[in-house]
Design a protein around this nucleic acid. Structure first.
Lengths: 217, 217
DNA sequence: TAGAAAATGGACCAGCAAGTCCAGAAATTC
DNA sequence: GAATTTCTGGACTTGCTGGTCCATTTTCTA
């Protein structure tokens, strides 16, 4: 995928992608020109087109992939070990911290909007990221089930999907308003849902209204 | 705010805003030019600048406000009467239908990204929309409380914030992937959270683990 | 009805940013 | 160490798009 015959070439290419990611995070895709990227990365126009012959779109796509990879990496190792309430709490804190640090620009959201139409490339990146993310959340919930902390008849996939949506929306709102309380609310409520759905006391007796029928009476 | 001395003027201005909203929804803000809008609305360049002297940004802002108003309107009358489980269900269906119909482009999301930096205007629109939306959800939850369907010690504001985040994220994901299951999961799980948090049987006896302490053990 | 104000049409301008090109330096290969 | 490939620099082109300008028509007002 990332073709670069020589060592120097690979380094330059990486420098371009990382530098572009920086600029895009700061200025937003709508206000970033190739010259900005060129300036930041200390490269020339011809280099940009040497490594990304299809132009800006191809570069943006590479950045999108780069950012998408970062998203999950930044949640590790917590995201991979969601097998206790404590680990869920740590993960929750990591997510909040990560996005509060990131400030008020969502690299993927904006990148996607720009490249959106250009073939299935961008969509594939987002779809893949969401799938992996949700998968890891679901795995964590199953771990809780295995440890008897959550009832086994919980619809793990649906709950994971809902939690993921909450995170996503929390981040979106935070980008728009600068307030992270929605993200926190989504995370806390989502996890609380897991906890209250589970057995309340120690006894396996009175399950708390979690009937099999998922939705409506 | 919307100054237009004569009747004809107001009509033209409205035509521009509505037509622009259409085009923007179809093509996305990044790929829409003033000429596209001009063509769609059957106007001339000078008209565009006559009604929006500050240029494209001002027009986009007007469209953003227009779309923001639509968002809440489209959820009525359900959103205003969330006082029974049935009304919540109807509202849920309305939301899903609305966004499934809208297809794969989020007018506000993209508009915000474009106008984002230009003063507090865009941010104010988004912030206001979120505030109103969440307020209405919270009011619905309090109605449930009043009817004894949800325990009175529920943290309404936090729960409403989480539900709003879930919707927002569900829509975002749907825009990116074309799949509405996350939106549905967020809505259903959110409402289910209300229902299972409430008393399980009819008796006021065993409340279901909803301890006062909101978050962590 | 006359004059002012608003509305409209469309040609025109200017700047910017993506993309091209070729010459030359560095590195790799034989 | 010569040839070939890769890498780099930067000037140049080109198309597009937001924005300007002014003439003309329509509408309002007195």
């Amino acid at each position: 995928m990332s073709d670069a015959p020589t060592e120097k070439g690979r380094a330059t290419r990486a420098r371009i992608v990382e530098g572009a990611a920086e600029v895009l995070r700061e200025q937003g895709v709508a206000f970033t020109t190739l010259d900005d990227i060129r300036g930041r990365t200390g490269t020339s126009k011809s280099q940009l087109f040497h490594y990304f012959p299809d132009g800006k779109d191809q570069l943006l796509l590479a950045v999108a992939q780069f950012e998408a990879d970062r998203v999950l990496e930044d949640q590790q190792p917590h995201l991979g070990r969601l097998d206790s309430w404590e680990s869920w709490r740590q993960w929750r804190d990591a997510v909040v911290e990560r996005y509060e640090l990131q400030g008020d620009h969502c690299p993927l959201g904006s990148l996607f909007l720009q490249v959106g139409r250009s073939g299935p490339g961008a969509r594939a990146i987002v779809t893949g990221l969401m799938r992996q993310w949700q998968e890891q959340l679901a795995r964590g919930m199953r771990a809780l089930q295995a440890n008897g902390l959550v009832p086994s008849d919980l619809d793990v996939d649906r709950t994971a999907a809902a939690l993921l949506a909450g995170i996503q929306g929390g981040v979106t709102i935070m980008m728009s308003t600068g307030d992270s309380s929605h993200l926190k609310a989504a995370l806390d409520t989502g996890i609380e849902h897991l906890r209250t759905t589970g057995r309340t006391g120690g006894s396996g007796g009175d399950r708390c209204g979690t009937d099999g029928a998922p939705r409506w009476p």
